[in-house]
Amino acid sequence: MPPAPVTPEAVLAYTKPTSGWMCPLNANSYGIEFLKFEIKDYDTNRVVYQVAREPDPEPLPEPLDPEVENMIRSVKYTFPASFLKFKTVRTLLEFCVGPKPAPNLRMIERHFFKDKLVRTYDFEFGFCIPNSTNSWEAIYDVPEYTTAQINDYVSHPYAHKSDSFYFVDNKLIMHNKAEYQYARD
């Protein structure tokens, strides 16, 4: 029996980080590519993280070496511990879409610390125009962490993990992971 399709409802019910990938790389038949990601402290405009790239000139070879695949699909962040004290954060994501329209794009991101769910982001981009370049900038207030919590995050590098799921019309087309460590400033 084929495995049940991975729906938004299914990933919203996950209680710990995934092991493995919930969809193959080639599930992204819409040619969605991330071009830029930026995290800033809203109050000081200080850049905490910034990465930008050009769209891939050609598709990736298949089959892909699992190690290479893991490298492409996961990222390790090192943030300053002061990041946990920011009141307001500004994130910017830029992505492009291939020649097919992508109806109803939705992102669900699940954050875990020590295998316990700490936060969920759920955002509907909606329709994406073929061959478009789009951006999403979010300015949001961060819940306050206690000193004990901050110490906990700092002393457990990479215990903070996230799974990012992208759906087009409720079908999973991308799954990426991230791990975070916090360094004393």
Partner: peptide, 30 residues
């Protein structure tokens, strides 16, 4: 703008999701 720029921000206690869509002729049908 060759697509959309979405901005999620708070204004006077409300969460605004502003969809700024490109206005070029080829984009208007979308």
């Amino acid at each position: 703008t060759l697509g959309f720029n979405i901005k999620t921000t708070t204004y006077k206690g409300y969460k605004l999701n502003i969809w700024d869509i490109g206005g070029q002729k080829t984009l208007r049908p979308y």
